[in-house]
């Protein structure tokens, strides 16, 4: 039961309290780039959840059972980035074969996930902090769901202010960053939750 509670708490804290975009600054590029439309934000979010959870599940045994016993834990970054790149390709092929409609909606965003720092960031911080398998999984789920949540909420807000009359210099990215700042203040309010 204790393990279960710790698992749930780790998910919640990764998702809301230590939010991946607003307090740890992973994945700002897709956050700003792919949030112009709600549909694409949902697609990107789902794809990121899929890739982060899978890569955390695959990279943990690779680190613990191959890299550490072989005495080359410093090769972790290279291994992870290769695993992630292969995984993104594989996931793309898999989705293309079994669900062409999902592939169509995700298609453009899949290759972008390789360079999303959230993926490498989660896997790397899992091994840097020496988390066990369950906690790694919880971290991956919490972070990725947090990313999806934020990118969807942000794109919904963005739809509103894109049509508004903002000062000419602030049009586009600056006003998006200001919105993110306000969201970060809101999420700072959740800090005392756990």
């Amino acid at each position: 039961m204790d393990v279960f509670i710790a698992f749930v708490l780790a998910i919640v804290s990764g998702m809301l309290i230590d939010n991946v975009v607003l307090s740890r600054f992973y994945g700002i590029c897709p956050f700003l780039g792919v949030s112009k439309k709600l549909n694409s934000a949902v697609g990107m979010g789902l794809a990121v959840v899929f890739v982060i959870v899978l890569s955390a599940v695959i990279c943990w045994p690779i680190y613990t059972y191959i890299l550490v016993p072989a005495g080359v834990p410093f090769l972790d970054t290279i291994t992870y980035i290769l695993v992630i790149a292969c995984l993104v390709q594989l996931v793309g092929l898999f989705i293309k074969k079994y669900s062409p409609s999902l592939y169509k909606s995700l298609g453009v965003y899949l290759p972008l996930i390789t360079t999303n720092c959230a993926v490498l960031g989660v896997v790397q911080s899992n091994s840097d902090q020496q988390l066990d398998f369950l906690m790694s999984l919880a971290n991956a789920i919490g972070t990725s769901v947090g990313f999806m949540l934020i990118i969807i909420v942000f794109s919904a807000i963005r739809l509103r202010f894109e049509s508004n009359n903002s000062p000419k210099a602030f049009k586009g990215l600056p006003v998006a960053l200001m919105t993110a700042a306000l969201m970060a203040i809101a999420f700072m309010g959740l800090k005392g939750m756990i």
Binding site: L22, S23, F25, P167, K168, A169, F170, K171, G172, L173, P174, V175, A176, L177, M178, A180, A181, A184, I185, M188
Partner: peptide, 25 residues
């Protein structure tokens, strides 16, 4: 204190981008 927290990062970066946009405009 807000400026060394995440919020400040977004605000400062956004303001600098806005200044650059204003100059180029």
């Amino acid at each position: 204190n807000m400026f060394i927290q995440p919020t400040g990062a977004f605000i400062v970066f956004g303001t600098i981008l806005a200044i650059i946009a204003a100059i180029s405009n």
